[in-house]
Nucleic acid binder design. Structure first.
Length: 602
RNA sequence: GCCCCCGUAGCUCAGUGGAUAGAGCGUCGGCCUCCGGAGCCGAAAGCCUGAGUUCGAGUCUCAGCGGGGGUACCA
């Protein structure tokens, strides 16, 4: 926030030390960790350690660091810097405390004039593609898909806000044995029986899949008739896959019809989550181009064609890289029957992303069980001479399981997103706050939806992506403590104060003695832009989730400790009102980056 | 076997190599004549083990132990 001021101070300190022949390492500024006062801090341990190493030896490192800090303090006090109220040298650190009236005014004015753009980064000059929200078709959207979707969307909003040109891409698996399995049972037993409702129909397809899988899976004490029956079903399914591959018009029509149901459900859910996908890649569409790549890889000697010996087309990655241990292993890039695999298609897709969309960074939001797959894909791209391979990044996240174990459609152990969302919204409505009783039915429902979905989103985003999540309904839909609604509530309280205040002051001075709660609030607000950059650069929505909670927590404390409307001094009252306005704005901005709406009432 | 991820409070999780390791849930104790109690204030309780690097390690390296995932024609 205060880049230029900070740079001026850094320059001054550097000048002083170079005059005195003390080689200073680059200064890094961090917020002073102890609350109550507002400022930045830097330490001199590294400089002292470097001295000791180079043999100058001026005593133990901590003592020497403190000595340097004191020198810097003395010198800066003799050559005052505008905006710095006072300094201290303690335990090897130099702490600079801001003149709060000027800076507070500056921060609040900046927030309020920039509004929802406060914190937005300057254009980075790079294009990022985020691939996410990609369930297979002919299945229903479950809570694991939801983690993927909300993680990808939050990440997209973060990189976009941080200044990257951002493309959201989805790559649904619309073909494969699972899809054909559903197609087979639908065709055989259920034609025309599909429900009309988009969600019911999606969930119905899932039931069909479970039933079909049961019919097609070998059981322990099968009678000979059962075995025959099962084998005949399986033959029908295989035949159907062949027909699909050959472009049989009837099978293709059936496929397109059922596929459309799934995609329609997906679009409805994405709309609910306010996710707007820019580019759709379908697995069925990258099938053909991927085979061309295989041919090229064989010609270039990267892939080995073992088909003449009845094998597949493979890439011995470790061998090609000269590695001794099994790390990337051997990857199959084409089946022995000449059909393509997931890996084959991802190679083709990567090429298209770079050549057609000219992306500078390509992020894949896919669960961590596919880590090896992406490592293989990126290495093959590298062997292929594709220089952008190093710009590919697999954002792996832990999978979502249930208290009773892994989710499994076949065992009927699945938590669907829609069911959780419905329940979340119902719980909010049951809460029945008297504050929303004067809202229209439509508004009440809309608010309930914002809060229910906010709770769900926050439950997913407040855990680091590499961690597995055991989904427990009561925990995910809690509204107390470290949750989305807690943050939304801070926003609502700010809104409530402003509504009661009536007027919104155009300006304010901060000449009163600031309460430590006010200082803490302004400190956090001023850190928002840096937090945006950090979260985006590290591809970690968690950082923004943690920030949003901190800000809400600080606001709640402020709210209890510091009177705003009841302040008698009109100048102070206006100053605090402006601070509340700024806090409300930043809470809303932070929540937006998490894909969470900030309501005015709840 | 090999590769990847994880191990922090009773439980679930935070913690850019730096000052006093922080939250939530749960437990215990306070706070509604006061801007919204989905809230606030307080208490008890913690870095898997062992080496190493470093002025300084929860954080980096190696080994061990424990848990999860992956490991040639699924996605």
């Amino acid at each position: 926030m205060f880049g230029s001021e900070q740079q001026a101070i850094t320059d001054k300190i550097n000048a002083f030390f170079s005059e005195n022949d003390i080689p200073l390492v680059e200064l890094k500024w961090t917020p002073v960790p102890f609350s109550g006062e507002w400022g930045v801090s830097t330490s001199f341990f590294q400089t002292a350690a470097n001295e000791a190493r180079s043999g100058i030896g001026r005593g133990p490192v901590p003592a020497r660091a403190q000595e340097i800090a004191e020198q810097a303090k003395t010198w800066l006090e003799a050559h005052p810097v505008i905006g710095i109220h006072h300094l201290e040298a303690v335990k090897g650190y130099l702490n600079l405390y801001f003149s709060t009236p000027e800076y507070t005014c500056n921060v609040v004015n900046t927030v309020l004039s920039q509004g929802k753009d406060f914190g937005k980064g300057a254009p980075q000059g790079e294009r990022v593609m985020v691939e996410f929200a990609q369930p297979n078709t002919h299945h229903s959207f479950h809570i694991g898909h939801y983690r993927n979707a909300i993680l990808g969307e939050s990440l997209s909003r973060l990189v976009e806000f941080a200044g990257f040109d951002t493309i959201r891409a989805s790559y649904p698996g619309d073909i494969g044995l699972g899809v054909i399995t559903v197609l087979w049972i639908y065709d055989k037993f259920y034609r025309g029986q599909e429900p009309a409702d988009v969600h019911e129909r999606g969930q119905w397809l899932l039931k069909l899949y479970v039933e079909a899988t049961n019919l097609l899976t070998e059981k322990e004490n099968e009678t000979p008739q059962e075995t025959l029956q099962r084998e005949s079903y399986d033959a029908e399914r295989r035949d159907m896959y062949r027909k699909w591959d050959a472009g049989d018009p009837e099978i293709r029509r059936l496929w397109e019809e059922t596929r459309a149901w799934s995609l329609e459900e997906l679009r409805v859910i994405l709309a609910m989550l306010e996710i707007d996908i820019d580019v759709w890649f379908f697995e069925s569409e990258v099938d053909e181009p991927s085979k061309t790549i295989v041919t090229e890889l064989i010609e270039r000697g990267i892939a080995t064609d073992e088909r003449p010996e009845g094998g597949a087309v493979i890439v011995k990655i470790d061998e090609k890289l000269g590695l001794k241990k099994d790390k990337y292993r051997t990857a199959v890039i084409l089946r022995s029957d000449g059909t393509s695999l997931y890996l084959t298609k991802d190679l083709a897709l990567a090429e298209e992303k770079f050549n057609k969309y000219h992306v500078d960074r390509s992020i894949y939001v896919v669960d961590n069980r596919q880590s090896l797959h992406f490592q293989q894909a990126f290495k093959i791209l590298e062997l292929w001479g594709f220089e952008q391979a190093e710009k590919c990044f697999h954002l792996a996240y832990g999978f979502v399981s249930l208290p009773e174990g892994a989710m499994s459609a076949r065992r009927g152990r699945l938590v669907l997103f829609k069911d959780v969302a419905d329940q979340a919204i119902q719980r909010v409505l049951d809460f029945e706050s008297e504050k929303t009783s004067d809202l229209s039915e439509h508004q009440r429902l809309e608010t309930a939806s914002q809060i229910g979905l906010g709770a769900m989103a926050y439950a997913m985003l407040s855990v680091d992506n590499n961690k597995d999540i055991v989904f427990e309904m009561d925990e995910a839909l809690s509204f107390d403590g470290h949750t989305g609604p807690y943050i939304q509530n801070a926003h609502v309280r700010a809104a409530s104060i402003l509504k009661k205040a009536g007027t919104r002051p155009e300006s304010a001075a901060y000449n009163h003695r600031l309460d430590s709660h006010e200082v803490q609030l302004i400190d956090l607000i001023s850190r928002f832009p840096d937090t945006v950059q950090q979260a985006a650069q590290e591809y970690r929505p968690l950082i923004m989730a943690a920030y949003a909670y901190d800000l809400a927590n600080t606001f709640h404390s402020f709210y209890h400790a510091v009177p705003v409307l009841k302040t008698e001094d009109e100048t102070v009252r206006q100053a605090r009102l402006r601070l509340v306005m700024a806090a409300k704005q930043v809470l809303a901005n932070a929540l937006a980056l998490l894909g969470i709406t900030a309501p005015e009432v709840m």
